[in-house]
Design a binder for these strands. Sequence first.
DNA 1: GCGATAAATGTTACCGATTACATACTCGAC
DNA 2: GTCGAGTATGTAATCGGTAACATTTATCGC
Lengths: 349, 349
Amino acid sequence: MRKRATIYDIAQEAGVSTATVTRVIKQDPRVKAATREKVQRAIDANAYAPSVTAQNLERGSAKVLAVVLPEMSNLYFSRIYNAAYWEADANGYSLRLFQTRENQPISREMVSELIRCRIDGVLFAGNIWSSDRRDLNDALERLKNYMPVAAICPPGVDLDCIRIHSDLVSCVRLPVRHLHTLGHRHIAFIGGSMQTKDASKRKYNFLEQLRLLDLPDDPAYHIEAGYDMEGGERATMRLLSSLERGRWPSAMVTFNDLIALGAMKALKKMGLHLPDDMAVIGCDNQFFCPYTDPPLTSIDLHPEEMAQSAVRELLLAQESSSQSFSMIRDATLIVRESCGAALGYRKME
Amino acid sequence: MRKRATIYDIAQEAGVSTATVTRVIKQDPRVKAATREKVQRAIDANAYAPSVTAQNLERGSAKVLAVVLPEMSNLYFSRIYNAAYWEADANGYSLRLFQTRENQPISREMVSELIRCRIDGVLFAGNIWSSDRRDLNDALERLKNYMPVAAICPPGVDLDCIRIHSDLVSCVRLPVRHLHTLGHRHIAFIGGSMQTKDASKRKYNFLEQLRLLDLPDDPAYHIEAGYDMEGGERATMRLLSSLERGRWPSAMVTFNDLIALGAMKALKKMGLHLPDDMAVIGCDNQFFCPYTDPPLTSIDLHPEEMAQSAVRELLLAQESSSQSFSMIRDATLIVRESCGAALGYRKME
DNA sequence: GCGATAAATGTTACCGATTACATACTCGAC
DNA sequence: GTCGAGTATGTAATCGGTAACATTTATCGC
């Protein structure tokens, strides 16, 4: 490895002081043209580039934001990461990704690490709201001493930080109303683990919607599921096998597209034809939705925009010191064919 | 924001020198128990944590590796990232992700950034081998002055750095032989852009396999495609519409699972039934493969293991200064139902 | 109780930049 | 020729740690 030239080397070679070298680099106008050239030559000759580390130390900040996410098996999180990355980039910040091991929420060590690294702001997303209330609050309070904290979280999570809420009302209301419009009356909800705030909120909203639309609510129709395809498959099998054929729902709202994918597989295995025998709606509008069979109607929560807002607010909070901000981004229904709507299909009972 | 305590504050509060504070933190055994306690109390009282930036400056390295990837729309890359992340983590390094904007290969600025940040090693993966030879080599040479460089790349890319090759022979040989065993004789290849090394290599290997197995080679059977589902869908439509029905192939090998997904959609749209009318094989063994309809037979290139090896070699190269290493990780065929094999199906012509 | 050795702690230069302040140089006016 | 204003450049403290070396204190043999 080549030894890196320091500012001292350059200063010496150009026969000036380090201050002058800095001035040349910073394009300070009050250096004589002749000097500037001398210095520039030395810089070029040695391919000199100032050490970011040293600059960071001097500046007292590394201009880094952090985002804490569960391992990115789910594309929903890469969308958040990507959006945050470019937004940070556009503001001269870099973004460090901290991953939590599966279902492990923020650990004590991670909090320490964030503080030790002089992170300038941190964004949390994903399944950390389920962790013990006290632990979470402690972690948050500790962090907030040193950096602005933002979270993409379900509404109602009353964390004392910048909060960007996904719209858990519309993300259930939209599919239910859509199905209702199509004539469905027996609608099931395949949710995540009711331990998590997100899932239990959605279930609550789901029941609310049924009531508002005067739809029957069969307790057998809401069922927990792991957050992936296998979870969806199992839950669906459980749902169908627990009921006699006549009492099966005619439509399913799922917690996310992965679960929907698993559900679709289970339904086909049971010999059902989609969307005629069963309508399915996913959530997250993942890239594969147009390519499932039939193409999956889904909900877009706009994770990119949420991440972008979060980063912007983090940067703003650096100066303003006000760390209370809360916004809610509404969801959008993306209609495809898994409910038959696009086919002009209408359920009759 | 709270003012952070420095080592001087702690030293003062505990009535010792900074050296002693460092010793306590580093668990140096030659501090008296009484002193240790005094210091520890001061540390705890101020929630003191040494500044990573200052440590980095002193150490002359930030213990960071970097991985340069195209934006992670493709799960293949998140798998590489994840594996690299944990491997780095296990060795006390952190991992910074640098993303290239779509199809833009490594830019001059990114190289500068990597150098300025005193990155301790960099791993490249993805579609950068297509970029101009000279530019790429220049970038590599520049980087190699300052850090070990590794690349996950197709075999035959004769970059002068640590090379982890995916097995582009088996990743075509396996599916072709599999299809051949099942009785297929008319096999098409839906590849990526022939501009890229990866895709052209595979096509070459594909033709080689046909020859070895004495299978007919119809030029209409190899066709370019964008790297995503839309690309696969379009390419498939093009393939089928360019031939009269009687000359259609009975099986398709695709560049990746996304393309396969698109192809499957196109095939269904044409009224073909899988796997009876057409067998399809993907590549990458992505998470959704078991959940396509029918479940997609695919090739696993083991990106995790490649990333792991790459990180290990990067860390090794730091001392040994030998930067020539090359290994090839073979591929594995994952048989599902999209070729009918699992159903005991056999093609007869 | 003294010197020799070991144990505990302190002093200070250094890592590589930035910047407030000090100094030197230039030029025109008188 | 000298003074002052402005311009160009240099000096040195600073950021927050680390560690080689120096110094002080404790321990032990005789």
